[in-house]
Structures are given as structure tokens and as C-alpha cells.
Nucleic acid binder design. Sequence first.
DNA 1: ACCTGAACACCGTTCAAGT
DNA 2: ACCTGAACACCGTTCAAGT
Lengths: 238, 238
Amino acid sequence: MTEARPDALPDALPRPNRRGRPPKGAAQLSRESIVEATLRVVDAEGVSAVGMRSVARSLGVDAKSLYNHVEGKDGLLDALAEHILGGLALPEPTGDVRRDLHAIARAFRDRALRHPEAASLVLTRQLASFEGLAPVATVLRVLRGAGCPTGEAVHLLRVLLATLIGTLLRELSAGTAFGVGDNAGIAARQEALERSGFPVLAEVAPHLARFDREAEFTYAVSFAIDAVVTRVQASNPR
Amino acid sequence: MTEARPDALPDALPRPNRRGRPPKGAAQLSRESIVEATLRVVDAEGVSAVGMRSVARSLGVDAKSLYNHVEGKDGLLDALAEHILGGLALPEPTGDVRRDLHAIARAFRDRALRHPEAASLVLTRQLASFEGLAPVATVLRVLRGAGCPTGEAVHLLRVLLATLIGTLLRELSAGTAFGVGDNAGIAARQEALERSGFPVLAEVAPHLARFDREAEFTYAVSFAIDAVVTRVQASNPR
DNA sequence: ACCTGAACACCGTTCAAGT
DNA sequence: ACCTGAACACCGTTCAAGT
């Protein structure tokens, strides 16, 4: 839904002969349209292509105009991260702790990786924003609903989120660092590990050279959630 | 040791009247001296102050000279992250899995946070470098030594590292986002949470508004290591 | 209220020319 | 082998002036 591009928006491509004031019923710049244009730039050319000038150009507008709606480039990137995270559709808790936490983690991953070029922004900048509160609240509801005391619930929330974010960051960098699936790359990495001078790396090279995104995510999340469930039961006398 | 600044290094401050070729027995630019100069800039003014021009200026040299030793700005930042991580002093495993993993995590944290302004570089860029192999190998030695099969050891390594990195990133952003310790800030955050519209956030506000770096780190690492130890025992019939 | 012109003070990087 | 001059093609951001 946050992806929707209303037809009322101006053309995304730059139009020539632009100068002076808005040409009739044009543009109507807004914070939202700016953020959406930024997302289009990121999806198409990566986050390094984002600039006040490039985003403005894609809207057929001068770069300085953006400052009327956004707090500089840094504010623009924050707004983008919040926009993406704001589209997170959280599942309603069912009462089954394990299942509920899995569903939340899965929803978060889907959302964060939906725009792969923007994912690192979401994972590293969201930490203070209001948008980040909804997933936090949902996890806490699940933990509290299972009888977890408030202090312990906050601790478990934090370690769960840390594992999730760390795992997604790795998934992201694994995707860009080496072609995850290609066999030649796997063979090359395996060989490099065998030559690394660390015997233990040679020993585990076949596993370490491989990275199955789906399997790694499932393993990490299951691991963390199992541990959380154990803690919750321990902290809950009943 | 990587912090050492040999006296043979050129003055860190820019010297005037610099032009033409090196003035006698000066500079002697090298990859290492460039990286060390970069670290000084980061420590003093933050990572955003790093530039080919600013680093070169601090060495009394032209920016373009750096390209003879480093692969552009991006390569420079990679080199810096590797340099810092390369200074990691890993403890020798004792055979006590829990104690050994704790010691590794602690050493990693000390190293990564020793240069707080550069920490995010180390945590987000180290993932493919050779420097990152030493801690990986040490963790694997501990797990293998405890009888953990190769495949499981790699999985546990990855989830452990993800939790560690996620936790350190949070610690970092908690430190900059709000003054961690200050009481006025805590009170303000607590109030904001109570007004957030999420009842569960109001309920846990006193805990969620607080962030004790040391306690959070200890909790997260102990949590993850306990879970790892449980897995290792389960995967090890003896 | 919102947009632009002119302007400021910067960037990273190339390439040929120097030594 | 390594450094610089000149140059290119950019940046983010301000502020006053326009409508």
C-alpha cells in the first residue's frame, strides 16, 4: 500500500525547459511524493545514487525545493527508512508464542528485504523512529501474554531484535559480497578457506563457503525463539 | 599495538607551502600511514569528516597521492575497518565453552568500541575481509572442541555473530540517539512511551526507556551463549 | 507558502606531466 | 615508483528574491 503510486503524481521523468515557477497544474511537491521518488531512485540505482539533486530531477523540480519538506539529505534517508518500515503488516498474535514470534520475524524480513537496495537503511536507521514502535509493541504483547515479567520481556525483546537485525544484515552482505548460489564462487571460497592457514576453517570449509539465505534465516530465528520460549517458561512459575 | 604512532611518521598537522615534490626527507607515504591518519581523523571528527582531501591534508600531501596506495575512498574505509579488526587480541581457548565464548565476545566488543566513531564501519564492513577470519576460526575451534559437528558449528557461529553484531549496533545507536544515562532523558522517553497509544509500551515503559550498556551486553551474550551450549550438548551424544 | 537564481564551499577521481 | 597540476563533473546547503 505504501508502494502505491497515485496517478495524481507528476511524471517521474525529468521534463525539459523547467524554470521559474511550477508550470500550471504541475508538481505539487509534498513530503510523501518526495519520499516515494527517493524510493524509486534507490530501487533503480541504489542508495548511493540518492541525492538532493537526483531526487529533485526525477520530480522535475529544483533540488533546493526539497528543503521545504524534508530536513536535508539525512532527514530524507531517515524518512525513507521510516516509510518502508511503516508499511510493515504485523500479524495479530494468536497466543502461540513460538508461532507468533516467527510470524513477526518473517513479516519484518519480508518488509525489510522488499527493497533490497534500501534494506540497510531500514536495518541501521530505524532504531529510534516512531515507526519502529509497532513491531516492538507486538513482540512485547506476545511475551507479556505468555506471562513474562516486564523487565525480562524488554531484555528478550532486545536480544531477539538484535539477532534478527544481525541476521538480516549478514543475509544482505552475503548477497552482495559473493553470488550466493553460484557453484564456481562456492568452490573458490572453499579453496580459499582451505588455504587460510586456520585448520578449523579447512575442516568446515564446505559449510562456511555456502550461504542459503532461507535456511540461514530459519535456523537463526528458530534458534533465538526456542531460547526465548525456554526463558519465558523459566520466568513463569505457572 | 595497531594504535602505536611511530615517531618516524610525518607530522599529523598540515604544513604550509607544500607543492612540487616531497620536500627532502619528508612524508614517505604508505598504505599504513594513510590508514592511521584516517583513524586519527575519525577519532577526532567522526567518520563523516573522512575524505580523500581531509586525510591527505592531515598528512601534508595532495589528495590524489592517496590513490597510489588505496583503492579510492571506499577502499580506504574498508582498509580502516580491517585495520581496527586486525588489532583484535583473541584469548586462547581453555576448553570451557561458556567461558571461552564469553571471552571472545568481550574481546570483540572491546576492540570494536575502542574507536566509537569507527565502530559502525567495523560492524558493517568487516563481513568479508580476511581480518574477520581470525575470530571466526576461534569460535569454530571452541565449538568443534566441544564435539559440535561441522554443519551445526557453522550455524551456531553465524547466529552467535549475528546476535553480537546486532547487540553492538544497538549499543552504538543507543549511545548517540539519547544520552544513555541521563535521568531527564529517561523520564522524557518514559513519558513518550506512556502516551504512545500502545498499552503494552506504557506497561513496560520504565524498562524500555532505560539502556544500561554493560548490563544489556552481558544479558544478550549470556543468553546466546547459554542457548549455544544447550545445542552443543544436544548435538553431542557423549 | 513554496519555489528558484545565484552563489558558496566543498566533493571523488582521471590523466598526463613531472621527478 | 610516486607525486602533483589542471581539470572534470559533481555535491549539500544558504539566503534573498520572486510569485
